[in-house]
Design a protein around this nucleic acid. Sequence first.
DNA 1: TATACTAATGACTGATTGGTCATTTGTCAA
DNA 2: TTGACAAATGACCAATCAGTCATTAGTATA
Lengths: 278, 278
Amino acid sequence: MSKKQLIMESALELFAQQGFDATSVQQITEHAGISKGAFYLSFKSKDELINGLIDHFMLSLISDIDHVVKHHETDATLLFDFYQAAFHSFQKHSDFAKIFIKEQSKTPNEELISKIHQYDKLIDNIILGMLDRIYGEEISQTRFDLIYCVKGFIHTYSHLILFFNVPLDLHTLSRSLAEKTALLAKHSETTFITEELYHTINEPFHVHVTKEQLLEMMEQKIEELEDSTLKESLDLLKQQMIEPSLSPAIVKGLILNLNNHPACKQIAYLVQDCLVND
Amino acid sequence: MSKKQLIMESALELFAQQGFDATSVQQITEHAGISKGAFYLSFKSKDELINGLIDHFMLSLISDIDHVVKHHETDATLLFDFYQAAFHSFQKHSDFAKIFIKEQSKTPNEELISKIHQYDKLIDNIILGMLDRIYGEEISQTRFDLIYCVKGFIHTYSHLILFFNVPLDLHTLSRSLAEKTALLAKHSETTFITEELYHTINEPFHVHVTKEQLLEMMEQKIEELEDSTLKESLDLLKQQMIEPSLSPAIVKGLILNLNNHPACKQIAYLVQDCLVND
DNA sequence: TATACTAATGACTGATTGGTCATTTGTCAA
DNA sequence: TTGACAAATGACCAATCAGTCATTAGTATA
């Protein structure tokens, strides 16, 4: 076993027990039976070690479930096998999994958050691909909500697997979740996460809507809408963006008008951003 | 605002951004505009502050959703109102909620983990009570699994609410989750979490606020409040706790007075627990 | 004004951290 | 045995932490 691997395994165990911050490099090297200096021959810093661990686990998990989804012949047992693969992967790398669930969104390291978010998107895509393949058009209204439900199931039940030392029947669990997922896919009808919302969430950093783009979006919305109050509010706000003339209170009120209608919330958000920041 | 409150609010903001460990007492006191020494006049240690914050938020959340579940007349909209209350509470105390979701089972502080686990069990009981009330025998095989599904839904969608700065329609979200929960309750059949397993995981427990602690909290609240009705209600209930003399109807009315004011809901919950159980 | 008391301060302590580097140890070939 | 080189060490550093305490500022009473 290479020194790097030795360190990673020692660190893993301690991180799972105590978390990143609470585990010192000293502890890691003592646990691995090496000196502090030797640690820094293998890793440039503690952060580099953490990054390496995250990469290792996430790639392992993702390739596990991706393999199941991609190389599956009949759709009949796909959901079941997906859950089975996910939970097995969690169990196999339980120390990794514990860290991942515990330190989900710690904030000292911007790079790390972005990395986890990227992996999360990959998982989303695998789940979405699976659901589309099984249900096709049937779930066109609820496919993004279904992703969140599947991830919610995995999260809560993983907690059970990882943090309670009881023998669990993963076969029954996977069967149970496959049944639940199928029920939601076939009968759920209410859309909460629209395609638009989903894409806004998943690209929050790169999304920069220019003033021109926003004006165009407003124009389009005005044509789509029926309600005259909303149409008028949008039109006034559009003019305000081109040539400010209204008082702040009026602008605020107009934005509130939009906020009251679900179909306009998204655009209200963008308009507010644009008019407040100018 | 008392110094204690000032510190708690300052700390809250910083904890939500950076986490517990990454936030120093120095930072908190600078943000609050007081000296480091003054911090230790209000709190015995940093841990005591953290404990205080957890207690404050969890009791607030629990009393919010408990109130909805207990005082609901028709079962028809109960699920919807439950989700609505939960998400509103999360949004209202979004800094608290962020901390709770981030640092779930983090610190090596044994006491804190146990505390959070105990609150989690309280929430489980409220959810279970709600589900039993709506569906009764119908869900006898799946009631414990349903708890985990409801919590899974709340967890994933809370993530959306808390960590992405987008406008969300909580009304639609609650409707959507109520629909999903109803689907699972009515059609799901596979049991994974048996009664035995559930009780193995959750050893019995009580969050116990002693009478003395509660009296002290009431005392403090009386000083904070302005409204004379609330002050008087609290004072009468305090005397009632020391030396019962009022009729049950009066006590009930006084508690209702408190319930009408958001800032007192949580203390109302505790007082009710104390006076009803005695 | 003098006195008594509490509230508030911030320099300080001792412990711990991530990271460095002069030194030692181990392992070769010559 | 020697010399050359890499591998490994751990004392050390600056920074930071939670928590303390002698001192000062502020306020109310006599």
